[in-house]
């Protein structure tokens, strides 16, 4: 089982021309996520309104095609969604990476579904989840602060 099939049009498009790779002017949250084994490093920013809707999001940083594309696809999915829905998608994504997601879950994850085979390649799993993990951390920190 190789990962080569993952490197296709969708991944390349999001890696080469990531629409969400930009700095936000007035983000509500900013958090850095790091993958120490390969030096991937992203800074995720979210703008969340009072109703808990993610109005805007962006990421900066550098990393492999998988971490970059995954973060870009994630933002496509969660911008315009409520925080709870974003976390639900994150948990489905994590499930998919563990090889535990149903067909429907993967369907819901839309373009992020291209990364499902990464579960066979433990060394690259961290790249795929970097953006999603950082997202979960942002809201975990928020909860701890008791917003």
């Amino acid at each position: 089982m190789s990962l080569k099939s993952i490197y296709g049009e969708i991944l390349n498009e999001h890696n080469l021309r990531p629409m969400n790779k930009r700095e936000l002017k007035d983000p509500t949250f900013t958090l850095e996520g790091k993958n120490p084994t390969c030096g991937d490093d992203i800074i995720l920013q979210l703008k969340v309104n009072e109703e808990g809707i993610i109005e805007d999001g962006g990421f900066t940083g550098s990393g492999c095609a998988i971490s970059q594309a995954s973060a870009d696809i994630m933002l496509d999915l969660i911008i315009g969604e409520k925080k709870e829905r974003a976390l639900e998608l994150a948990s489905k994504f994590m499930g998919m990476i563990k090889g535990e997601a149903s067909e429907e879950d993967i369907e819901e994850l839309d373009e992020a579904g291209i990364l499902k085979d990464i579960s066979h390649m433990p060394a690259r799993v961290k790249c795929a989840v970097l953006g999603w993990h950082t997202l979960e951390e942002i809201f975990k920190e928020e909860d701890q602060k008791g917003f």
């Binding site: 990962l3 490197y7 390969c38 492999c64 095609a65 390649m121 690259r124 790249c127």
Partner: peptide, 13 residues
């Protein structure tokens, strides 16, 4: 190309 992508693509070969 990030080196990890190089290794993964070569692994595919």
């Amino acid at each position: 190309v990030h080196p990890h992508d190089i290794a993964s693509i070569l692994d595919g070969d």
